[in-house]
Simulated assay, not measured.
Amino acid sequence: MVPLVHGHADPAFRSVREIFEASIADGQNLGAGVAVYLNGRAVLDLWGGIADAKTGRAWERDTLCVSFSSTKAVTATAALRVATEHGISVEKPVADWWPEYARADKDSTTLADFLTHSAGLPVLDRPVSAAEAAEPGLVAGLLAAQPPLWEPGTRHGYHALTYGWLLAEFIRRQSNSTVGGYVRRHLGPDLHIGVPATLLKKVARLTFPASDEQEWTGDPDPISLESVRRMAHAFRDPESLIMRATANPPAAYNNPEVLTGGWPATGLVTTARALACHYRDLLAGDLLPRAVLADAIRERVRGIDAVLGSTSAYGLGYALASENMIVPAAAHPTTFGHPGAGGSIGLADPHHRLAFAFIPNLRRDWLSGDRRAHRLLEAVYAAL
């Protein structure tokens, strides 16, 4: 019998492998990858299942998959690296390097506001196509002309898509590069924010579980019932901020135009191994100076997210433990990273020198009972 899961796990992490194997066998995962680095060493690198339910194509070692908002942490690293290279303070007004942005009561907005989802621009005022979204500078120009929904810096609310184009404009103006190009050159060649057309055949096809598995559970622990009520109301209202923030441009992530488009908030196409390596390299000081990273993972905002309706918390671009990034109790308070829609996550725990990533192609979420990454992480911490 052909094994469903391939790769290696150190003996101490055998239970993690067993949980991953069981999730493939029982259908909780269709196909997925998971990777763990401890003290800079790969202690677990597994992949398995089906990459494409339509063709039966197997998930292989180099199968790529969309990681959705796990992208945001990689884009944050790129922006912080550019700021460091050019000596630009994240607390200085954006208008210092983007004069056109100083319109419609946005002249005091800072790069830190972009990174903490505090800019007040979570939605686009006009429809944007996938082709326009791939045009460098176009979406940023639209955002520069918009008035903010709240005074920048006074509250935070998830900029699900616009986060990426705001930071992309900073990177473009300072380095004359797209986010995808900068990331491949400086952060890792296997981190594709805009996958090359030649690699499309290696990308896993996303799919959804059966409709009865998508219903929200009555016990969403550890998300509070109040947060569930707010989120449920928002997701049922097409005019809510979360729906407007995620529906424009239309995001069909099996569409080659989106996969190659380089959406810098949600378009990272990669392996769990490469995403975990990103966090390994951050911990090692290879991507950012240690002092810069320490400042970046310091909590800047926390509270009820104006867009999501749940509690979220951020450093400079990196999500911190909250209802929006749920981590096991054993995780250290300094843990940082970013989750993505459908179950993906990448994170680092500096105290334990741990880097972790999980990327599936069967899209579930916390409120429909998805605990796949959490179960794996719990087993990782139990093995330390």
Rank of each mutant, 00 (worst) to 15 (best):
A348Q: 11
P328K: 03
P220Y: 05
I359N: 04
N324C: 12
L316Q: 05
A232D: 10
W366I: 12
D113E: 13
D45W: 09
D96R: 15
G315C: 12
Y101H: 11
T266E: 06
H233C: 09
H351Y: 08
R155T: 10
F13K: 00
E21C: 09
S67P: 15
A22N: 09
D10P: 13
S69G: 10
S368Q: 00
S310M: 15
P93K: 05
E18Y: 03
G7C: 14
L80M: 08
F170S: 05
A53T: 07
A140L: 07
Y253W: 12
N361V: 08
L142R: 07
H338R: 14
A251N: 00
G7A: 11
L46Y: 06
H374P: 00
E378F: 04
T178Y: 03
T116E: 10
A291K: 15
G346D: 10
T311A: 08
V43R: 14
D212L: 04
P250R: 10
G153Q: 12
A119N: 07
D113R: 14
R230Q: 02
T335E: 01
G87W: 11
S118T: 08
G194R: 02
L44P: 04
E378Q: 14
V269E: 01
T63H: 02
S368M: 03
L115F: 10
L38S: 07
A22Y: 07
G285Q: 09
L115V: 09
L46S: 13
D370Q: 01
